[in-house]
Simulated scan of single mutants.
Amino acid sequence: MTAFAKSERHQLADLLLRLGPDAPTLCAGWTTRDLAAHLVVRERRPDSAIGMLVPPLRERGEQIRLAKAAEPFELVVDQVRNPPWWSPVSNPLVDELANAGEFFIHHEDVRRAADGWEPRDLSREQDAALWRGAQFAGKMALRRVKIPARVVESGGLGEFTVGPDPQVTVRGSAGELALFLSGRQGAARVETDGPDERLRTVRLGL
């Protein structure tokens, strides 16, 4: 694992153990137990992960996740911390690309579900990694919901536009944009300019 993905993974595992299995998260209806189980089956059960993309298989994927969530919480968190080397999404060749954003977002899902949180100070390298992921996921999400928008990274990493003649602009740091564009609009500290209020409430994540 490369540095950022590994760091976020271990920080999240530590936080999960500290809070226990019943703490809230930003993922609607999920506790920390549910979130940990999701991360494990994503890496260890590709047949479950397919259900996120193929609706007819979603129920089967949820059954697999619930079975994992029923296992001892400490064991599930240990599997979050120590991914299999053979996994399609956590092997050394793809780990940073597949997991830098994934684990940052889920780390924040747990952090920001509690009162008193503040955005973390991230390195320039971390911002760059998150911005790459935010561009890819954000373009897909905005095209899917058919909302023309301009997205600007406030640290100077760049910007992108989706759709013709966008009337709304979203501006923020790479981490905050990654959260916003993955569907965590209510917990992301970004600025929006323009008339399209749907961007604050529409489902942007998977």
Rank of each mutant, 00 (worst) to 15 (best):
D193V: 14
D165N: 14
V170R: 08
R33P: 06
A3L: 10
A98H: 06
I105K: 02
L26I: 07
D34Y: 05
I50A: 15
S173C: 14
A37I: 00
E125Y: 12
L57W: 04
P166Q: 10
Q185Y: 05
A69L: 01
T32G: 01
P84L: 04
E62F: 09
L122R: 02
F4A: 03
Q11D: 08
R42I: 03
R184I: 01
L204Q: 03
D34H: 08
A37Q: 04
P88Q: 12
G101F: 05
D14L: 11
E74M: 07
L17Q: 07
E153P: 04
I147E: 09
R42L: 05
D127T: 10
T25C: 10
R111K: 14
R9A: 01
K6Q: 10
P92I: 01
E176F: 11
P195T: 09
E74S: 10
R45V: 11
G155M: 09
P46F: 08
A37G: 04
F104I: 04
T32Q: 01
G51Y: 05
P56Q: 02
G194W: 11
A37N: 01
A187E: 00
L15E: 14
S182W: 04
D165I: 13
R184C: 00
G20K: 14
D78Q: 12
D193F: 13
N82G: 11
V202F: 03
L130G: 00
P88N: 13
A141W: 12
E153F: 08
A188L: 07
D34M: 05
G138Y: 11
W131A: 04
E108T: 07
P164R: 13
L177K: 09
D127S: 13
R189E: 07
D78H: 10
A134S: 15
G61R: 04
F160L: 05
A129T: 03
F180D: 01
V152A: 05
V162R: 09
L179I: 15
F103E: 00
L177E: 08
R184D: 03
S87E: 11
G163Y: 03
E108M: 12
R58G: 01
A114G: 09
R60E: 11
V41Q: 02
R81M: 14
E43Y: 06
P83G: 07
V110H: 03
W131F: 06
G183R: 00
A69S: 06
L19V: 10
H38A: 03
R112W: 10
P56G: 02
S182I: 08
A129R: 01
P21W: 00
V54E: 06
W85T: 15
L204F: 12
G158T: 14
G51R: 03
R42Y: 09
G138M: 10
S90A: 13
P148W: 12
T32S: 02
R198G: 05
G172W: 00
E108A: 09
R60N: 11
A128C: 06
D127Q: 15
S7E: 06
R189L: 08
A149W: 05
L26P: 04
I50K: 13
D127H: 13
E118T: 11
A137H: 07
R111G: 11
P92D: 08
W85Y: 14
R65K: 15
Q79A: 14
L35N: 01
E59K: 15
P164V: 13
T192W: 06
M52G: 04
Q79R: 15
G155S: 12
A129D: 04
L53A: 15
L75T: 08
R132C: 06
I147C: 09
F4N: 03
L199G: 00
L16N: 01
L204M: 12
